[in-house]
Design a protein around this nucleic acid. Structure first.
Lengths: 236, 236
DNA sequence: TATTTAAACTTGTATTTACAAGTTATATAT
DNA sequence: ATATATAACTTGTAAATACAAGTTTAAATA
């Protein structure tokens, strides 16, 4: 069960959790590297590896002679970039409703992106979600993951949890990049009902292919976004 | 005048130059870390720092047990990221039409972003463009730059030139990042006429604030995008 | 010959040590 | 009291070393 994470990743997870959990206020300083060494019983290079990852993911900025300064968590970047949607808005306000529980299916014949052989042979895990802010529907997303080495995945709970966080913490799958196409389209009947907008009203439409640290493991998503009250915010 | 770069940065610059210069083919392997140590007379942690930076900047990917694989330099990134719109589509197909020549004005009272004091006091350079692909209008953008140390700017030619390229080559201003908001909206009469879509049809709407290497110098843009035939494509 | 095993690579993780460089607070001098 | 210098922090850079883990190649075995 214990996935034997390296120490710097364990420390990364701890600090990340503390930051998003509000243990450290925005703008305040993290404990110094030497303090972190002492507290967690590791050496400074190890601590620095963890901090580097936090910098890369936008949770802190470092200043020589000063320390590590905590940034507001959704410095992570929202739907336009590699992180999950949860952090874009602030996890506390974003609720997740599963429209279609994760289920194993075959791939459809036509896809906006091309599959690798392994992916096609393994089938897919299909998952539909509706995501709400203040009980108002904002995202509707359709996700396809290749069914490769994801034990117990279909039986896990997704309510109010980020898909990416689950992949990262339980399967050590990290998003390393991707590509996406973006359009403004008219809401169809189906979409308008889900997102509670008028039929024909403009909604954002995204197609994404995300790369991961697992070779040949990509996540394919289609996302509809109701931008009437919220807009997609991105920092880069 | 030697800027006394740290060793790992020197090595980074060397390897980067070699990669973009074609010394290493795309997909081929860089010398192993130990080889690089020997050749450049540094230790492995130093080499790894340089390679880390190359990974971060998208020039290589590393595989445990295999080596460092050369990627084609981060092609361009499209409108969703820091580069100009020209590279998103391919400069050769994108034409620029100036709707309102650059002119010096005062800032309006209301702005989607907050100005710094220096920016507000200096006034702005205002610039409207329409950008076409195959003679079909695709972007309409409204740009505001603070009027700080930009000699002869209003008299320069912009036709078929990237605003960012001009800023970089003539004023050494580089975009370092930014933030943006994204919505799908209905085309107003004005927008529909410019982008040649029906009134009320969905168009993409972006508001951006771009940071530069000049402290306190930001570029504020509003962009309307006709996504009927083209979609915005982004790699990250 | 085909398969398996082992060796020789590669990068990944981790410790220990040392000094440089930037920041802040304190003590000292004027 | 104010300015200056010092000391005590902070992160940044760099070395030398060790072993783990993944990949490839070559040798040994069936």
């Amino acid at each position: 069960m214990g996935p034997k994470l390296p120490q710097y990743k364990k420390l990364y997870e701890i600090l990340r959790k503390h930051i998003v959990g509000g243990v450290y206020e925005e703008g305040s300083l993290l404990p110094s590297e030497n303090e972190l060494c002492a507290v967690h019983g590791v050496t400074r290079p190890t601590v620095r590896q963890a901090l580097e990852a936090l910098v890369r993911d936008g949770f802190i900025v470092k200043k020589q002679g000063k320390g590590s300064i905590v940034k507001k968590p959704p410095q992570d970047i929202g739907i336009l970039s590699i992180s999950g949607t949860a952090s874009a808005i602030g996890q506390q306000y974003l609720k997740t409703q599963i429209l279609s529980k994760p289920q194993i299916m075959t791939w459809p014949d036509e896809l906006p992106f091309e599959l690798s052989e392994v992916e096609r042979e393994s089938g897919r895990i299909y998952l539909e979600r509706l995501r709400l802010v203040n009980d108002q529907p904002v995202f509707y997303d359709i996700n396809n993951l290749p069914n490769i080495n994801l034990p117990r995945f279909t039986s896990r709970s997704f309510e109010n949890k980020s898909l990416f966080e689950l992949l990262r913490t339980h399967y050590q799958i990290e998003i390393t990049g991707g590509e996406q196409k973006l359009k403004a389209i008219k809401a169809t009947k189906h979409i308008s009902e889900l997102l509670k907008v008028k039929m024909g009203d403009p909604v954002l439409y995204l197609e994404r292919k995300l790369n991961t640290n697992r070779d040949g493991f990509h996540i394919y998503s289609t996302i509809y976004f109701n931008s009437e009250k919220h807009s997609i915010f991105g920092v880069f």
